[in-house]
Amino acid sequence: MESDIILRVNGREWPLRVDTRTTLLDALRERLGVTSPKKGCDHGQCGACTVLLDGRRINGCLVLAVACDGSEVVTAEGLGTDGELHPVQQAFVDHDGFQCGYCTPGQVCSAVGMLEEVAAGWPSAAGRPVADTPVLDDAEIRERMSGNLCRCGAYANIVTAVRAAKEVSR
């Protein structure tokens, strides 16, 4: 079964006919050639496919494209470009928050979404009482970024990068 939808990706509109089984991730990667979000597991277990969907971080492999009709999708490619990187991206470069780079666009989108969540007062499982205003210390960063696996093991540098980006955005 197929459906006609419109996806808005990094500010550009794409009318698209999709198999209703197609995930947002596959629609981006295989139909639109937007390969910044990566496929690491296709099951919501790794975070490599993280994009911002209407401003919130989500796993692109867990959302069907047909459910995103009219939605705004922002990928790491939409956050910044070479020469004009987003502060989170610049911090990842400065602190070497990656090696192979395959998890990285997902980490970047996740960090951007996460900083918004903290600003909005969303709690985490890091151990603080949920009613408290979250303070983004390293333990909070680690907890809130744990949905994004990195097999290269760049976590220590990712935390440093996110902390640095948070400082810049202050």
Binding site: R29, G33, T35, S36, P37, K38, K39, T75, A76, E77, L79, G80, T81, D82, G83, L85, Q89, Q90, F92, V93, D94, D96, F98, G101, Y102, T104, P105, V108
Partner: peptide, 21 residues
């Protein structure tokens, strides 16, 4: 020195095998 491929990787524009158009 920062990685020469750093900007491509943080923006997701570095091309991996499955991504060649």
């Amino acid at each position: 020195i920062g990685r020469v491929d750093g900007p491509a990787k943080v923006t997701g524009t570095a091309t991996y095998a499955f991504e060649h158009q």
